[in-house]
Design a protein around this nucleic acid. Structure first.
Length: 577
RNA sequence: GGUCCCGUGGUGCAGUCUGGAGUGCACGCCGCCCUGUCAAGGCGGAGGUCGCGGGUUCAAAUCCCGUCGGGACCGCCA
């Protein structure tokens, strides 16, 4: 049917007869003797000259057979890749007529996202989605090639699995053959890939669909794709190297430029310098330690565990009183007691509500430590260390985060995540990752000695990959030894029978010779979004859900009729229907 | 669970703060004219439950309450 794509035609084709297919883009009808029809496919636009009366309207699907010819002298169009030529002597075959589209099909207009999603099939025709989904396909391909090149074997794991109690909320599927029982959809192939290690596939990978029933965000959908990998007889360094290769190949495929060695930062350094375990290192504004300045302060707000600040260079004029009040409210909504701010005036003098409670010495040291100059703005948070870092980390992003696409691709490994994220009132530590995460070798001894808050300083061999402030993925070295695993379960307050019930099949598998292994998984939607310069992963997903988890195109989720429910042995609670 | 923003012909917006007739702009749509345009041009025309419900008022797109939908974020996402 088609001999050429629209966007391919050049002067070199002049004289040849071609057939192109596509959608009618703009048309310029002069009379029944002359009309210009722009025909569009995903490669571009070719102008077709029609000299008879034809009822061709926007988005009609046609094939055009014609002769490629040079445009008239001075009539070429530099905006089009095909602008030197046009199709003449056109024979037009109408393949489908079309109603007027519900939103403009040209690229200039912003269209409400809800309307785009309701007519996603039209939105997909536009160059933004064409480009993004093609980038996505290229990234998938680059990842597969990179993993295969490194000796990894693609293994598929089931979608209908047993629910495991830890982690995110599961999506569940009722079982028809086993009434009262449910499958869960996988949050990740975590346990299966570890079983593959026991099964002797020492390098596993999969581009896996993962599902988590948690609230949606710009960078989170219910369903998302991960490059999931695991390898046996490897160290953390080996895993980082495998993943780096896939990441670098992906980025190079899209940008044409190969990223350099991905730098590493420990978790504690990230938290102290950037207030986040996924620091956006495209810009500075780092958190600066001020606690020692206020050790003997008279100011009550600074008589706390930790005082830190950030410097907003030349921010004094940009931020008026209203803006500062708004920032203060934001910080409070994030859990801060308040936000201390200082305008730096002439000769490093400070202006701010709290200066009257501060000594000369404190003011001088604060200014010096912050490196503040006239016209700068200093924001200070005083609270528990954890809170201070968290709030300043959020404030830093609020004040200075560059738009996506600016500042290049700042990949970063975060290593040595803590093994435990908090401690219950009864003194039991709560794991930060999953309970099979291997502790840091230097901290193994602390497992026996620690108590209470001590647990929080035990490091693990867990690591994250971060790109421009987005968490791309995470992984860890897994525990493969029974005694360490028993110790961890003991610390977590998980009894033997409980462990057997929750993870029995994995523990059973480990009885039969578990190789040391480690792995990783990173989110492909997020990687593609950042490579495509999009702020939102919905822009790189063909059919995404809205923030409330519905699909304006198919109207999912929908009710089930009574017969369907009955077959599954389900009855709706009275107050739900 | 919480905070904030948005909802006005098919589309994008202005109007809302400070209540006074569905008022306006651009695109699109329909018809006519037009032989070199390219976001074609000219003339004419159609198209509205101002998301929905309630309240205040002589009077509500505008103020108040509720609700639905969309978005951003905090919590949540081992």
């Amino acid at each position: 049917m088609r001999t050429q794509y629209c966007g391919e035609l050049r002067s070199s084709h002049i004289g040849s007869t071609v057939t192109v297919c596509g959608w009618v883009d703009t048309r310029r009808v002069h009379s029944e003797h002359l009309a210009f029809i722009d025909l569009r496919d995903h490669t571009g636009i070719i102008q077709c000259v029609v000299d008879e009366k034809l009822d061709l309207r926007s988005e009609y699907v046609v094939s055009v057979t014609g002769t490629v010819r040079s445009r008239f002298e001075g009539k070429s169009n530099e905006k089009l890749s095909t602008g030197e030529v046009e199709l003449g002597d056109c024979i037009v075959e109408l393949l489908s007529s079309a109603e007027p589209p519900p939103f403009p099909m040209h690229e200039r207009s912003e269209v409400d996202e809800n309307i785009r999603l309701r007519h996603r099939y039209l939105d997909l025709r536009k160059s933004r989605m064409q480009r993004n989904l093609r980038i996505r396909a290229q990234v998938n391909s680059a990842i597969r090639k990179a993993m295969e090149k490194q000796g990894f074997v693609e293994i598929e794991t089931p979608m209908l699995i047993a629910s495991t109690p830890e982690g995110a909320r599961d999506f569940v599927v009722p079982s028809r053959l086993h009434p009262t029982n449910f499958y869960a959809l996988p949050q990740s192939p975590q346990i299966f890939k570890q079983l593959c290690m026991v099964g002797g596939f020492d390098k596993y990978y999969q581009i896996a669909r993962c599902l988590r029933d948690e609230d949606l965000r710009a960078d989170r959908q219910f369903e998302f794709m991960q490059l999931d990998m695991e390898a046996s007889f490897v160290t953390q360094d080996d895993v980082l190297s495998f993943v780096s290769e896939a990441i670098k190949d992906s980025a190079e495929t899209i940008t044409g430029e190969r990223p350099g060695e991905i730098p590493r930062m420990t978790w504690i350094e990230a938290m102290e310098r950037f207030g986040s375990d996924k620091p956006d290192t495209r810009f500075g504004m780092e958190l600066i330690e001020l606690s020692s300045i206020f050790e003997n302060t008279e100011a009550n707000v600074f008589k706390v565990d930790c005082v830190k600040g950030i410097l907003y260079s030349q921010g004094a004029e940009i931020l008026g009183r209203n803006a500062i009040d708004a920032l203060t409210e934001k910080c409070q909504s994030w859990g801060a007691k308040g936000l201390a701010w200082f305008r730096v005036g002439e000769g490093s003098s400070l202006d701010g509500a709290l200066t009257k409670f501060m000594s000369e010495e404190e003011i001088t040291q604060l200014t010096a430590t912050m490196g503040a100059k006239e016209g700068d703005m200093v924001f200070v948070i005083a609270d528990q260390r954890r809170t201070v870092n968290h709030i300043l980390g959020l404030l830093r992003l609020e004040l200075a985060r560059p738009p996506v696409g600016e500042g290049g691709l700042n990949f970063l490994w975060i290593t040595e995540f803590p093994l435990f994220e908090s401690v219950t009132d009864s003194g039991e530590p709560i794991p930060a990752h999953h309970p099979f995460t291997m502790p840091h070798p230097d901290d193994l001894g602390m497992l026996d000695e620690a108590s209470g808050e001590d647990y929080l300083s035990i490091r693990s061999q867990a690591y994250d990959l971060v790109l421009n402030g987005w968490e791309l993925g995470s992984g860890s070295v897994r525990i493969h030894k029974k005694d360490i695993q028993a110790k961890i379960f003991h610390l977590l307050g998980i009894q033997d029978d409980e462990a057997q019930q929750k993870f029995g099949f994995l523990l059973d598998a480990f009885k039969y010779g578990a190789p040391p292994h480690a792995g990783f998984a990173f989110g492909i939607d997020r990687l593609v979004a950042l490579l495509a310069g999009e702020e939102n992963i919905r822009e790189v997903i063909a059919f995404p859900k809205t923030q409330s988890g519905s699909d304006p195109l198919t109207n999912a989720p929908t009710p089930l009729d009574d017969g369907h429910l009955e077959e599954l042995g389900l009855r709706l609670a009275p107050d739900m229907s």
